[in-house]
């Protein structure tokens, strides 16, 4: 019984791992114990490789010093790619937004990741975001800045803020269009989106 208590007790290794896993998004107690048992039933090498890779991830992956994208090097592969159009910078809130735009293969410019949005209610002001580093980048050769923050209140306010900071530098500022998804049926589109798409309609 004493050993049994230790196995399931608060200080036990399994309990500790379970609690660590549960801090990840989408992981509750059941998923945590499934993951833990899967690690245990795989060859020991798997678990060791996993643990070493997690340690490497934390020690060696950092935001790119230019754009904020995560990278093993000081400068990420996008910022150092000579084929990309360095006169265009697309500003996104977070890394997943950047990955989503990359997946479209439509954009060949550079990025800037803010790592958040202006949110006075949560104490996030311009100095908490990577805005000064963005403004520093705008010196030579940048022609256009595309604002791709979300259409939430905070995302809109952040876009307006950036426009006010950037436009005086004589650089074109554009905002990602909001509207009906491609291949989307009007009938299934929610009314707020339709309203915005109508307000932002274009002459053809």
């Amino acid at each position: 019984m004493v050993d049994g208590d230790r196995d399931i007790g608060r200080s036990g290794i399994m309990e500790r791992l379970s609690r660590l896993l549960q801090q990840l998004p989408g992981v509750g107690p059941k998923t945590a114990s499934r993951l833990m048992l899967a690690i245990l039933s795989a060859p020991a090498e798997y678990g060791r490789a996993l643990s070493k890779t997690v340690a490497d991830l934390v020690d060696k992956v950092h935001p790119c010093e230019i754009c904020g994208m995560l990278s093993e090097r000081k400068r990420c592969t996008i910022c150092t790619d000579p084929r990309r159009d360095s006169s265009l910078i697309c500003v996104v809130e977070r890394v997943p937004d950047l990955l989503a735009i990359e997946a479209s293969h439509e954009y060949r410019g550079l990025y800037h990741v803010l790592h958040g949005v202006l949110n006075p209610l949560e104490g996030a002001g311009p100095e908490q975001l990577r805005i000064d580093t963005l403004v520093e980048r705008l010196g030579a050769g940048v022609r256009e800045v595309i604002l791709a923050t979300s259409s939430s209140v905070e995302g809109e306010a952040t876009a307006l803020y950036l426009k006010k900071r950037i436009a005086p530098l004589g650089i074109t500022v554009s905002r990602l269009a909001a509207g009906i998804p491609v291949g989307g049926e009007l009938e299934y589109t929610d009314s707020s989106t339709i309203g915005r798409a109508l307000a932002g309609r274009k002459e053809i």
Binding site: L118, P120, G125, P126, V153, E156, A157, T158, L160, Y161, K164, R165
Partner: peptide
């Protein structure tokens, strides 16, 4: 601490809503 530009940005967002 909050800049005038930040306040203006939220004022305009608030006005739109």
């Amino acid at each position: 601490r909050s800049s005038d530009v930040e306040l203006e940005s939220f004022t305009e967002t608030l006005a739109a809503c």
